[in-house]
Amino acid sequence: MNIFRLCGDMSHLAAIIILLLKMWKTRSVAGISGKSQILFATVFTARYLDLFTSFISIYNTCMKVFFIGTVYFTIYLIYMKFKATYDSNHDSFRVEFLIVPVGGLAFLVNHEFAPLEIIWTFSIYLESVAILPQLFMISKTGEAETITSHYLFALGSYRALYLCNWIYRYYAEGFFDLIAVVAGVVQTILYCDFFYLYITKVMKGKKISLPA
């Protein structure tokens, strides 16, 4: 563990907590893409299959349980509890255009042609594009609530911090995982446009409103 990875995990944790607070306090899921949350649930389920087979640390196990638990709770809030406030018309990204290519790529490019390894690779590739339905929804509605912007900033920062973690681990431990790094770079790049809007607008107290 290093400071970059710890900050990354804390940023990820913060993002999930911000999202839950937004939904619980406003009792609304307006502006939140249920499809992205379903993709995140798929990512965590696929990645944490080893939750019961390989023990890394208490921290690792607790975080995995928390991430899986909260993402399914988020889906429950979106599609059941606060279903009336879910804006399905604007959440229209065709996720099959993500899942099929990512699934195919996981078969072709992986570290080892073994079931668990291919599923892990699938979760890494899927995570790098899982935010697209959410960003697409914001571009369609033309604006994002400030709390949603904070959620996205924390979520985008988590993988950017992981990139720093991988640089550190390369020099400190000689650890290098090309698949995770490439997917992490793609994932972080997808947020750049949003990061620019967040820093130039939200930091000055303005709302994010894209030219619709």
């Binding site: 995990d9 990820h12 990645r47 080893d50 690792n60 570290h111 080892e112 390894e117 892990w120």
Partner: peptide, 10 residues
């Protein structure tokens, strides 16, 4: 064969 990194990250 190629070293398969143990996935110790979240």
């Amino acid at each position: 064969d190629e070293f398969v990194p143990r996935h110790d990250e979240l």
